[in-house]
């Protein structure tokens, strides 16, 4: 059977309180690209990667899509299956999903339409020392 798509966790709900790496608290809808970059910079374990959307296909489960990303400098090809409303943070743009209307309806989180070519914020573990 196909793997279940990643369900949408509660912290994408508008108004959710997010703690940045320096301790600052922000609402999820107020996060900026710089917040992710600066948080990763002071993290010993996490590194920001740029992940470019290469393809978006219909998923095997209802309301799911398979998104193919090209990740980091090595352009590693990674596919994830998520629900259409799952938001990704696009550099310089903010929250974006394959079905922004549904994201807004379910989570009251304003979203742009995620498109091929968009560059999303993703994380990599730094090597553990």
């Amino acid at each position: 059977s196909p793997p279940s798509p990643v369900a949408l966790p509660p912290f994408f709900m508008r108004g959710s309180i997010i703690q940045l790496a320096d301790g600052e608290l922000k609402r999820v809808e107020d996060l900026k690209t710089e917040d992710f970059i600066q948080s990763a910079e002071i993290s010993n374990e996490l590194k920001i990667d740029s992940s470019t959307v290469e393809r978006i296909d219909t998923g095997q489960s209802p309301n799911a899509v398979v998104i193919q990303f090209s990740v980091g400098e090595l352009k590693a090809q990674v596919c994830v299956e998520v629900l259409v409303e799952y938001p990704f943070f696009v550099f310089g743009q903010g929250w974006s999903s394959c079905c922004p209307d549904r994201t807004t309806q379910l989570f009251e989180l304003s979203c742009a339409k995620l498109c091929v070519g968009d560059v999303c914020v993703s994380l990599t573990l730094r090597s553990l020392k």
Binding site: S16, I17, I18, L25, L31, S39, D49, A76, S127
Partner: peptide
């Protein structure tokens, strides 16, 4: 009120790098 860490919002898309 629950507080979530910033990194819970960001997907891990690449395998661990050795740098």
């Amino acid at each position: 009120v629950p507080v979530f860490p910033w990194h819970s919002l960001v997907p891990f898309l690449a395998p661990t790098q050795s740098d």
